[in-house]
Amino acid sequence: MTSQLGELNPDAAPPWLRPLVDNVHGVPDAYRRRVPPDVLANIVELDKQAVLAGARRDAAVLVLFSGPADLPAPALPDDADLLVTVRASTLRHHAGQAAFPGGATDPGDDGPVATAFREAWEETGIDTERLRPLATLERMFIPPSGFHVVPVLAYSPDPGPVAVVDPSETAVVARVPVRAFINPENRLMVCREAATRRFAGPAFLLNEMLVWGFTGQVISAILDVAGWAQPWNTDDVRELDEAMALVEHPNGYGEAQR
């Protein structure tokens, strides 16, 4: 991995990603629309408490889209994909949960792009020279871990091979087709506890993972803002344990990974 990350360059986005990049400022609002007002208010209060207590922990995640550079807008390439991992079951925070590559900021990191790229390289072995950072999203607070996370939107026409580097940290690394997230049959709502209040958030059931929580919320918001989302059954609400059990039986739910 090299440290030459370059500046954010929205113009490096291919035409099919332009609707997202041009409207990336709308992702946080699309994210919050799925969070009940009382839960959102409690998260904001917990954020304030973390800052006052000096417990703020900065972090960044990589939201990496890959696909051909020359397909004209607004067509989404069939082979466009999004890089997702599953965290090892032994980790202290978010164990066994699907996530974007990323993690806590190191003292030597020069901003969130550096953090996201470094963490992605450490987790997946990706060649960061192939990546083009496009934009950063608004910092978001994750109460269970106390992290203030900056999602870094990036693009690569071909990111090269990726794989699990350290099984003690990462269980799965996958370039998931964007159309698998768009497919209404792969979507559901998952009931969970957030900041001691119970609510259901958007989730995606795929071959190797259930994508829910912060990552599911961000992907759902991205689909909405990019104009890729299709109508789906938001009344299909599952308990988290029930939804996780479905991962072991992908043929019994939707059309996973398609």
Rank of each mutant, 00 (worst) to 15 (best):
M1E: 09
S3I: 14
L5I: 12
D11I: 08
P14L: 07
W16T: 00
G26Q: 15
D29M: 03
Y31E: 01
V35I: 15
N42A: 10
V44D: 14
K48V: 08
Q49S: 10
A50R: 13
D58S: 08
L64S: 02
A69V: 11
A73E: 12
L76F: 11
P77N: 06
D81L: 02
L82W: 01
R87C: 01
A88R: 00
T90K: 01
T90G: 04
L91K: 07
H94G: 03
A99F: 15
T115N: 05
R118A: 08
A120D: 04
A120Y: 07
W121F: 13
T124R: 02
R130S: 12
L131W: 03
A135E: 15
P144W: 12
P144F: 09
F147D: 14
P151L: 09
L153F: 02
D158C: 00
G160K: 06
V172S: 06
V176Q: 06
I182C: 03
N183R: 11
L188H: 02
C191W: 13
F199S: 05
F204L: 03
W212C: 09
T215L: 01
S220W: 05
A229Y: 05
P231G: 08
N233R: 13
T234F: 00
T234M: 09
V237H: 00
E239P: 01
D241F: 07
P250K: 06
G254L: 11
E255T: 11
